[in-house]
Design a protein around this nucleic acid. Structure first.
Length: 444
RNA sequence: GGCCCUAUCGUCUAACGGUUAGGACACAUCCUUCUCAAGGAUGGAAUCAGAGUUCGAUUCUCUGUAGGGUCACCA
């Protein structure tokens, strides 16, 4: 029994995008489960469009995702072998050089290599879609090399897959129409035909193919957004595939155990960023406080306070970019004294009882004085809530007349975590200071 | 347009030919609540259409329709 060998073959003409990331994931899962070999081949035959920056990004993102290849190489390193195969085809009269006006400059003559197409119907069995057949006569004698020593994609792919003993080719559905060409080439060269599995495309919300141009679909972008690799893996795995059942969350190693090509979906799948964020939130919440800070690149002058805030971030943020923004925006009041607006402070003042907001803040201040540093939000609530309950007893909405000014005095925000949590993080002394500052504003 | 692929809630999807067609995200309402967030409960929401096979089609076949992909000296 021959070992399973798969490959992914990205061209370094853009940052690694979702389509390739998912192809890599499916290939990786399929190969790892079978105990086979997973190859990364950089398809760099188009020297004009390739950029080292993009190649570096492909390596970086795949490593970040944990999809490590057993070995990798550049297609250009096999140039001599490609030329050898072209010569063999020409010698056997299965291909020929053709002098034609150059595509890019019609005033020049190019000697392209064309395959002699026998014009037969090619049938192959796709592992996901079943039997697919093509009448290849319409392909004509298609070009396989710009010149004898400058191979094109179709030729290079076929030769490299043969030489690397690739047994299974997992690639996007957009390659289905390339497959008959590749099979024709394999037959001409006397090569084996590997098994093909064409996976469905990742679509944009209008159901068209996701493109680098029209949509931000690079892995790099989402990594910078603060998406966790385990979340992207989890999301991508379930986009176009699922193991059956109703479980939603899987780690990479769990996926390796249960992955099955036959359960890959046939139709394209629309990419939904909101759902990705939701999956990401789940994985963010599984992190320990320390990991959350480290992996989220969170920084604050007061490291201990940051640790206390992590639970709030886990509750609110869907991405680390969002978490970082909260730290410098809506949760900044936990580090620096906020500005207080007198009118907002009085927002819950009951018109029939003037001065009650100030009185509430004063009695709250008294209660705060009795709380020790390091107090928990639960204890703070036990100490402060009775004051609000007493107001509530006097009439509907009274609790808010106490809690709103307290929370606003502490946060300076119309929307924020509850006042007891704020007290526990700020500490009773800082809370008292802010409460008294608010009293001062009401006096002034 | 030719060729190829595909078709279950808005989206991702589940369902040996027999289920009140299930789950997740999103949405709505309610509960909890001073606000936000989180959490809990509830709800609306789908088998593209028409034939055929069958006692019985989401499921099998055909036709139609719709959507997508591809038609390079790019990969």
């Amino acid at each position: 029994m021959t070992a399973i060998i798969t490959r992914i073959a990205p061209s370094p003409t853009g940052y690694l995008h979702f389509g390739l990331a998912r192809t890599a994931l499916f290939s990786y899962l399929f190969t790892r489960k079978a105990g086979g070999e997973f190859i990364l081949r950089i398809e760099d035959t188009d020297a004009v469009r390739n950029k080292p920056e993009y190649e570096a990004d492909i390596f970086e993102e795949l490593a970040w995702l944990g999809l490590n290849a057993d070995h990798r190489f550049r297609q250009s390193e096999h140039r001599a072998r490609h030329t050898e195969c072209l010569r063999i085809l020409i010698e056997k009269n299965l291909a020929y050089e053709s002098e034609e006006p150059a595509k890019d400059d019609p005033s020049k003559i190019a000697r392209v290599v064309r395959l002699k197409n026998p014009g037969e119907t090619v049938v192959f069995t796709d592992l996901i879609r079943g039997e697919i057949s093509f009448d290849t006569t319409e392909l004509g004698d298609f070009v396989i090399a710009r010149s004898i020593d400058d191979p094109l994609y179709h030729l290079a792919v076929v030769v490299d897959d043969e030489d690397e003993n690739v047994t299974h080719i997992i690639r996007g559905e957009d390659h289905i129409s390339n497959t008959p060409r590749h099979i024709l080439l394999q037959r001409a060269l006397g090569f084996r035909t590997p098994a093909y599995a064409h996976i469905p495309l990742i679509l944009m919300s209008d159901r068209s193919k996701m493109s680098k141009r029209k949509h931000e679909s690079s892995v790099k972008h989402y990594r910078e957004q603060g998406i966790l690799p385990e979340a992207l893996i989890n999301y991508l795995a379930l986009l176009g595939w699922n193991p059956g059942g109703e479980r939603e969350f899987y780690t990479l190693s769990e996926l390796v155990e249960i992955f099955d090509l036959s359960r890959v979906q046939k139709g394209g799948a629309v990419f939904d960023e909101v759902k990705l964020f939701s999956v990401n939130q789940h994985w963010m919440r599984t992190l320990s406080v320390d990991d959350f800070i480290i992996r989220g690149n969170l920084v604050a002058h007061d490291a201990e306070k940051l640790r206390q805030i992590v639970p709030l971030l886990k509750e609110r943020a869907h991405t680390f970019a969002e978490a970082r923004a909260m730290l410098s925006d809506e949760l900044a009041c936990l580090f620096t004294v906020p500005a207080i607006d007198r009118n907002l402070l009085l927002a819950k003042e009951l018109s029939d009882r003037p001065g009650m907001t100030k009185a509430a803040l004063e009695s709250l201040s008294e209660a705060l004085k009795s709380l020790p540093e390091g107090v928990s939000s639960e204890i703070a609530k036990e100490a402060l809530m009775p004051l609000a309950d007493a107001e509530e007893a006097k009439g509907k909405g009274g609790r808010g007349a106490v809690l709103w000014p307290l929370r606003y005095a502490l946060s300076g925000q119309e929307r924020s975590p509850d006042p007891f949590t704020l007290v526990s993080i700020l500490g009773p002394r800082e809370a008292l200071s802010r409460a008294q500052k608010a009293v001062g504003i009401l006096e002034g």
